[in-house]
Nucleic acid binder design. Structure first.
Lengths: 222, 222
DNA sequence: GTCTATAAAGTGATAGAC
DNA sequence: GTCTATCACTTTATAGAC
């Protein structure tokens, strides 16, 4: 019988030949995962292609076949993870314009945003992008655009609608959104940017965010 | 006559022998200047000691005699420039508690701060520190402490006094200062952090800062 | 203290076999 | 597409002369 196991077989004994492009896709993903971990740990310059090679389990030549060079790998990996990261923030936007209790809705929204954006992995990614902006200005533009599309943009629309309905008095909704984000998310985020290990229990975080929303409403509630 | 110019002489023809420790001090300063420029351009890892050597005009061995290794050089250079940089912000603090027109004083203060902190060299330094925080947590702590001592600290004192006199209603002066900074300096600074080349004319900057101060006073003016 | 010259290790990238 | 083996170069750091 010619059933020596020279490879994986299915339930009928038929060899499973992985779709070549499928295997390539999995290797590509393994490279991306390894590269992201390495870039986050070491930054762009100190990250070595050798280290990414051993982390990923594929050969260095394969990495170069897929991504060309180190710069393109970096852009592909970081540029690819950015929208994914910010996607977590999207579900919270839609309820603002129709919320019965605007204050409670704003607190919930900004508190959720803050909890996500303070996550250590997202903070590390943020520091990495900021530190490499002179070398990769595209990433700064991308970060800005993504955070605008996913967060500020929808909120501006909601504030515009709320102003028309007389609930808010925000003649410049775009600036109002920037200010709301600054007084809420911005406060703990600034601390964590420079002191990643700074303690911040949930009660204190809630207090800061609530105070920021109240500050915002003291000026903008109609 | 034994006046062959084998070295610089003073007005009497007496050779000027530079104080050895003085020459060393000047070389040390040349190294620091060259290193700062190189680190700002390239970041920590990509900056090469060779490049710093040729920029500074001294030999590589001299740099190592002075600073030991690359990490210590980086810490000495960046840690040394931080207080110097933030010193520019100090003169503006003292007048707040006694200002006849608090709104105007706050606008002047935050506008001056913002103009300084948005300077390209300071923004680059900030990006450098943020990007290297995993490697050099001390710099994050230092940045935080320096900006606290030079800015927030004095303002907190002023707000405390103004609250006691009934001019402000700020039960938590430390948080109020964080919020004021966030709604003023923080708004354009966040944009410039990710988009160094973003245009921002002075009229628009003034509008943002003024709006931030008015937001602050809507909640905290007694 | 300062220099020149060099050591020892690591870098990004590629040629050629399969 | 993927691998092994290797190239050409740069890196940080130091030894030894002055």
């Amino acid at each position: 019988m010619a059933d020596d196991p020279s490879g994986p077989v299915d339930e009928y004994g038929i060899p499973i030949i992985p779709d070549p492009s499928d295997a390539a896709q999995r290797k590509r993903q393994a490279i991306i995962d390894a590269a992201l971990a390495e870039f986050l740990r070491e930054g762009y310059s100190a990250a070595s292609m050798d280290a990414i090679t051993s982390r990923s389990g594929v050969s260095k030549a394969t990495i170069y076949k897929h991504f060309g060079n180190k710069e393109r790998l970096f852009l592909a990996v970081v540029g690819g993870i950015l929208p994914t990261t910010y996607n977590d923030l999207k579900p919270f936007n839609s309820t603002i314009a129709t919320a019965p209790d605007l204050r409670a809705a704003l607190i919930t929204l900004t508190l959720d945003w803050t909890r996500i954006l303070l996550r250590p992995d997202i903070m590390s990614l943020r520091r990495l992008v900021i530190g490499e902006i002179d070398r990769f200005p595209q990433l700064g533009q991308l970060w800005y655009r993504v955070s605008y599309d996913m967060n500020n943009g929808p909120l501006i629309e909601a504030f515009t609608e709320l102003s028309e309905r007389g609930v808010l008095d925000a003649p410049d909704p775009a600036l109002a959104v920037q200010q709301l984000v600054a007084t809420t998310v911005g406060v703990p985020q600034l601390v964590r940017t420079f002191r990643p290990e700074a303690e911040l229990d949930d009660a204190e975080l809630t207090r800061q965010i609530t105070s920021g929303v109240d500050l915002f409403l003291a000026r903008y509630a109609a």
